Amino acid sequence: MNYVEILGYLAMITVSFSFLLKDVIKLRFVNAIGCTLFIIYGLLLGSYPVVGLNIFVACTNAFYIFKELKNHSK
């Protein structure tokens, strides 16, 4: 097993774990970390559909995290 494959498994575990969280902000934050790992994994493999999807999901997570934090601070 090489480091790229290990990175893929780590990304998979992180994204999977995020769906077990009840707090939506924590879920999105952990999921964004997993997406970032998948982006790196996809780049290392040259798999641009994996990269593109995970960039979209990470940006969506970031948008809603910042939106919620902004609303929460009011």
Rank of each mutant, 00 (worst) to 15 (best):
V30H: 00
G52S: 15
E5A: 11
S18K: 04
V57E: 01
A11V: 07
F29I: 11
S47Y: 11
G52H: 07
D23K: 10
E5L: 12
Y48I: 12
F38R: 07
S73F: 13
I6K: 08
L45R: 11
Y41C: 04
G8A: 06
I6M: 14
Y3N: 03
C59F: 14
F56Q: 07
G34E: 03
I55R: 04
H72P: 00
L7H: 07
A32W: 02
C59I: 14
F38C: 05
I25F: 11
F63K: 13
G52I: 11
A58V: 09
L37H: 04
F38L: 10
G42W: 01
G46N: 10
L43N: 10
Y9T: 09
G46A: 07
L69E: 06
F63H: 11
I39E: 03
H72D: 12
A62P: 02
L21N: 06
L69Y: 14
G34C: 09
G42V: 04
L43Y: 11
E68I: 12
I6A: 15
G42Y: 01
L10N: 01
N2C: 07
N31A: 06
S47R: 00
G46I: 09
E5G: 09
R28V: 04
S18T: 09
T60Q: 11
V30T: 07
G34N: 07
L37E: 01
L44G: 05
F56P: 05
K26H: 07
S18R: 05
K67L: 15
G52Y: 10
G46R: 08
T14I: 13
N71F: 04
F19H: 09
Y41Q: 03
G52N: 12
G46L: 09
S16H: 00
V51N: 03
N71R: 13
C59Y: 04
V57Y: 14
I33K: 05
T36A: 15
M1S: 12
N2I: 06
S16I: 10
N61F: 06
P49E: 09
L37I: 11
I33S: 03
K74S: 13
T60I: 14
N71L: 14
E68Y: 12
L69C: 10
M12F: 03
V24R: 10
V24K: 12
N71D: 14
L20A: 15
I40F: 08
A11T: 07
Y9P: 03
L69N: 13
C59H: 00
V50F: 06
V51W: 03
L20K: 12
F38M: 10
G46P: 06
V30M: 01
K26S: 10
K70F: 14
F29Q: 02
Y3S: 12
V4L: 12
V24D: 13
L44D: 03
I6V: 15
T14K: 05
L44A: 13
M12R: 05
A58I: 05
I6S: 09
L45Q: 12
V15P: 07
L7R: 05
V57P: 01
S73D: 11
Y48A: 01
